[in-house]
Design a binder for these strands. Sequence first.
DNA 1: TGTGTATTTAACCATTAGGTTAAATATAAA
DNA 2: TTTATATTTAACCTAATGGTTAAATACACA
Lengths: 113, 113
Amino acid sequence: MTQDRLSQTFSALADPTRRALLARLSQGEANVSDLAKPFLKEMSLPAVTKHLKVLERAGLITKSRDAQWRPCKLNGEPLKDAVDWMEHYRVFWEQSLDRLGEYLKGKGHGRKR
Amino acid sequence: MTQDRLSQTFSALADPTRRALLARLSQGEANVSDLAKPFLKEMSLPAVTKHLKVLERAGLITKSRDAQWRPCKLNGEPLKDAVDWMEHYRVFWEQSLDRLGEYLKGKGHGRKR
DNA sequence: TGTGTATTTAACCATTAGGTTAAATATAAA
DNA sequence: TTTATATTTAACCTAATGGTTAAATACACA
C-alpha cells in the first residue's frame, strides 16, 4: 500500500536499527559502510542497505555520491509533521505529571497524610 | 518479535485508522462501537477491534467495562517518550526554516540578489 | 584491462500485519 | 430462559517486513 506521509514517517521510526542509524547521522554525514559497521555482528550489509532505503523513501535521509561511496545525510523535515501531530496529545501525558506534581506539592489538603 | 517500547509506540502510530481512533478518543471516552462507526464502510468491526488491541498493547489506550460496553480511554504517556526522542532532532527540521528565515530577512549579504 | 573496495540488486524465506467471515462470549432485559 | 446488543476470538488469506546469500554494479587505480 502507498502509505500517507505520516504513516511512512512513523513506520520508518518503528525500528531500533533505523533509529540508531538516524542517531548516528545526527552527528554528521556518513557513508553506507560507516553506518553499517556497528550492526554487522547482528545483520548483513544488504540488510542495512534496506533500512537505509526505508529511511530514504520516508524522506528522513538523502544519499549523494562520492566516487564509490554514498554519503548519507539526515533530513529532519518529516519529523516536524510527526511532532506536530503528537503535540495535540501533549495534555494527555502532562495531565498525569500535573497530578503527580500536585501530589508532591502537598496540594492534597491533608489527604494521604 | 517482542518490540521495545519506542518501536511499539511508533508502529502503533504508523496507521491512519489508529491515529484517527486516538483523535476521536482525545475528545473523550468512547466504547468500541462508537469508535468503529466511522470506519464500518471501509472495514469490519473485528478489524477495528484489532486496531484497538494494537493501541492497547502499546499502552496508548485502556479499556474498562460497563455492562456489555468497553469504554476506551486515551493514555498519552507513551507519546511522551516518542516526542522526547524526536526532540533530539528538532535542530534538523528547524535549521532549514532558519535558512529560509535568513533568506527572507535578506541576511544573504547580496548573494543571490 | 584487471583488481580491489563500496554498494545495490535479485531471489528467496519466515514472520507479522491487516483484513475477512463465522462463531463464541458477555451482559441486560423481556 | 430466551432474546437482543456489544464485543471478542478463531481460522483463514494476502501482502509487506526484515532478514539471508549470491551475483551484479560503480568506481578508482595499478
